[in-house]
């Protein structure tokens, strides 16, 4: 078995797109859900949002940010025609979406894929969508054209979390009728957006990027605290009430393996460097 890559597109140094044939995911897919991808045997299983999909082709499109070993390996080792070993899903609760009026989507880095996906669901039931697509830097920012089919008001903001936060504040200040803010990205970012949503008393739906290793919550690595209660991000989430999610504990838990992840990435980069040198030598000969 395996799931063939139909299309790969490198967008910039930080982001790329993979279109993968995985029809089983789409039979019951609902906006807000995601998949878990195990690139190869011995690989690490990682959750990725279904950014876009094509039911006819049976394919899902993933928008991926290079962060560590797995996302880097998918970029450099997997090409069109190759297969990823496992695509599990869809995973996650189907969020209850309602027509509320004016909705502001705010994404940061990979979080833009997550808000786009649920935003599509919100648009389809008649909400008015505005989109602030946040990025760390100008070089890594993506073009608004990637998201343009869900809103005519898309603002790409680069320069870090604080800058995106300012934009959000300005937007809500100018649009007092905003009835929902939807945010996704690293929890450090979502926490800042929550500050704004809280001040303006706007409902806030946010995305808990917890560490997940299985799709049914057996391992419980993805436990998060919502209103003091334990919830599983893969089962009850990943979308939770942004006023109630405990961001600090999520940030803490997301750092559990940081040293190991750095080691894995360093080792992999060394390996790539060696290969580059070898190839260069060959060329000279």
């Amino acid at each position: 078995m395996g799931f063939p890559i139909l299309k790969k597109e490198v967008l910039n140094d930080r982001f790329y797109i993979l279109e993968v044939h995985a029809p089983h995911v789409l039979e019951k897919f609902a906006p807000g859900q995601f998949v878990m991808v195990l690139p190869k045997k011995g690989g690490e299983i990682i959750p990725l949002t279904v950014f876009k999909y094509d039911t006819q082709k049976g394919s899902i499109t993933l928008l991926i940010e290079v962060r560590g070993k797995s996302t880097k390996e998918l970029l450099v080792r997997f090409n069109e025609g190759d297969e990823v070993r496992d695509v599990v899903g869809p995973v996650g609760a189907k969020p209850h979406l309602e027509k509320v009026g004016k909705v502001l989507l705010v994404g940061y880095n990979y979080g833009n894929a997550c808000v786009y996906n649920i935003g599509k669901g919100l648009k389809d039931i008649g909400n008015e969508i505005h989109f602030i697509a946040g990025f760390e830097s100008e070089e890594t920012a993506l073009s608004y054209t990637l998201f343009k089919d869900i809103s005519s008001d898309i603002k790409v903001v680069s320069g870090g979390i604080k800058k995106v936060k300012e934009e959000v504040r300005d937007f809500i200040d100018a649009n007092k009728d905003t009835s929902l803010v939807v945010s996704a990205g690293i929890p450090e970012f979502e926490k800042e957006i929550e500050e704004v949503a809280d001040v303006f008393e706007v409902p806030h739906l946010t995305h808990a990027s917890a560490i997940m290793i299985d799709p049914v919550g057996l391992a419980g690595s993805d436990r998060v605290f919502v209103d003091g209660e334990v919830k599983y991000a893969s089962l009850d989430g990943p979308w939770f009430d942004g006023h109630k999610l405990d961001y600090d504990s999520l940030i803490q838990r997301n750092n559990i393996f940081v040293d190991y992840e750095k080691e894995a990435l360093r080792k992999f980069e060394e390996e790539l460097e060696k290969e580059r040198k070898r190839a260069a030598r060959k060329k000279r000969v």
């Binding site: 089983h24 995911v25 039979e27 019951k28 496992d86 899903g89 869809p90 995973v91 996650g92 799709p215």
Partner: peptide, 15 residues
């Protein structure tokens, strides 16, 4: 054996 299939998500009881 169909791995990667979460019953209740990938496929439901009705199916």
């Amino acid at each position: 054996i169909k791995t990667d299939h979460v019953v209740g998500k990938t496929i439901t009881y009705e199916d």
